[in-house]
Design a protein around this nucleic acid. Structure first.
Lengths: 323, 323
DNA sequence: CACCTTATACTCAGATTTAGCATTTCCGGT
DNA sequence: ACCGGAAATGCTAAATCTGAGTATAAGGTG
């Protein structure tokens, strides 16, 4: 198979690096966007001058947002021609990363980038105040209509499948809500034509399903949130988002912000403390409104002590076990 | 930052697709390698003719190995210049995938690819017969020597760090073995110069740390095994590797082969059955040597019923919970 | 038939998790 | 000084889950 030098789509064969940079400020989860309308994630092409993918990513984010990057992990590599908008000049391949930091105030003066609450783009993901009216009011009925549309074309199985997927992902019909299915929910809305990115032409009759982003950036944001929500359960990554000293309630609020749901306070504290994730700083804060709380700091040592938690299946002990 | 048009390494800016294709045959985990010495994984460049990354991967694997690909998921995207061998003409970026299938006998006649037991490449990962002599006999002492080498250069902290990493990853000094740290173990051996790929020149004084692979393919294999071992715990992926009908012991042996450790038989059965992962076929098999066993099949329905299991943190119930 | 091998059913104690209740300690008024 | 509000923090009953082991059944083989 010969390798063509050009093609009709005018796409380049290189790769773009895209970052989902997250912070939690004032109990709200935020994502770093580029200044131009806050509609895109920081990104740029991987170039021969970059030592590695990560260093290339850091360079682009810092250039576009003047914000330093801390913890970084790779998310996913996309290459769908039909989902990136089809503009010429852009690379086909997108390598996406998740970054965790604390929001900083513009230091040099120029505020080039904007931190945006991420539920602005995916409003149905925030259930801290109960199930959003958007779901029962707009999403659920429109998804049911979408299923019926398949039925009217005679595709009975497709109808059942669509209803089932809607119920699983959005917790309809008595199904439990699963906060990790962020990407599946967005993709379902995309397939059903209920997000602006899925419409080529006019956006008439579009339900208020959040602010759209350029290219497939909303999909990448969804991927990042999904990964973060999953990871927070078995790795102490929340602390990358916390200031040096924090109260347990602040920590809890951060977790709730990310997960989009409230957690049981006492059990959350027990979990954190019995895992020795934090240690007291000895100081207190009275700024919480009620009884002053102890200030804690993350025990960085745990990152070395325990490699991973990792759920475990029934493992046999002795060398000749399994009988 | 200027963008250089050429560089000394002669690398192309495109991406290579690489597959870790896994099967379990006769209780042994195997990986699909290309015929040339069974020293490389199926791979090839992503081209403009490919509809998507996955379809490109499938094309390359089927061309090089004449083996169809079933379940496929993305693993990781690498781009270290120094780890891929430095040959010219190869792409810098490697996008790796994990595939799960059942081994098939050569149908058309030509056996172009080879299924190799994966512990051939990573022998320290198999603890089904107890801790391999290789670890206590060669790896542990060589890693300790490597730590002391740092100490002799006066780097006391580095010595402690190396000993600690060795203990965590290889389960030394009373640490528990964590079967998911496949990549970390390989990378530690690489850093310590204990695998052939890490040596530029002669491989003198090399402990018997498995068969090397070309480029960084052994690292990619390690990544695939790590992912599979982790995933098997919360998603029913083993069944992609099983024949249509199987006994519970066969299923257990497959899990053990992948995990590299034995599991507790009765508890394993309880787990599988109470999760409704399988259903009886009604048939029995007498080929197990003892009492005939029931044959089961995978309940494909579970893939739709439950989206994911997903470990859960303490989540509050009511809308105004968390008090 | 004795005996080996594997299949399958049950039990049981300890650890974890869920969902609460109760008490303590500060603040801001009165 | 006293009171109610807001958190922080301590404790516990009940339900589940897990790890490990015992007992019994049902084939094949010498």
């Amino acid at each position: 198979m010969p390798r063509p030098e050009t093609n009709a789509a005018d796409h380049a064969m290189g790769a773009d690096l895209i970052a989902v940079v997250v912070a939690v400020t004032a109990g709200e989860p935020r994502v770093l966007t580029v200044a131009d309308g806050n509609t895109g994630l920081p990104s740029g092409p991987f170039e021969l001058g970059h030592r590695s993918l990560q260093s290339g990513l850091r360079a682009w984010v810092e250039r576009q947002t003047h914000h330093p990057l801390g913890y970084v992990e790779q998310l996913y590599t996309f290459a769908d021609r039909d989902r990136t908008g089809g503009e010429s000049g852009r690379n086909i391949i997108s390598i996406s990363y998740l970054g965790l930091t604390r929001e900083v105030r513009a230091p040099g003066g120029q505020e080039v980038a904007g931190w945006q609450g991420w539920y602005r783009y995916l409003p149905w993901e925030d259930r801290r105040g109960g199930v959003p009216a958007l779901i029962d009011g707009a999403i659920a009925p429109r998804l049911r209509a979408w299923a019926e549309a398949a039925a009217e074309r005679g595709e009975r199985g497709e109808r059942r499948d669509r209803l089932h997927r809607a119920a699983i992902t959005f917790g309809l019909d008595g199904q439990a809500w699963n906060d990790e299915l962020v990407l599946q929910r967005y993709e379902l809305l995309f397939e059903a034509g209920l997000v602006a990115e899925a419409r080529r032409g006019a956006a008439c009759d579009m339900p208020p399903t959040g602010v759209p982003m350029r290219h497939d950036h909303r999909r990448i944001l969804a991927t990042g949130i999904a990964r973060l929500r999953a990871k927070i359960r078995y790795r102490p990554v929340v602390f990358e988002l916390m200031p040096p000293g924090f109260t347990l309630l602040q920590l809890q609020r951060a977790v709730e912000a990310l997960a989009g749901q409230l957690v049981h306070k006492q059990n959350f504290r027990r979990l954190v403390e019995q895992q020795d994730l934090v240690e007291e700083t000895g100081r207190m804060t009275a700024e919480t409104g009620g009884r002053p709380a102890k200030l804690f700091r993350f025990r960085r040592a745990v990152l070395q002590e325990r490699a991973v938690a990792g759920t475990k299946p029934p493992v046999a002990r002795g060398p000749a076990a399994g009988s």
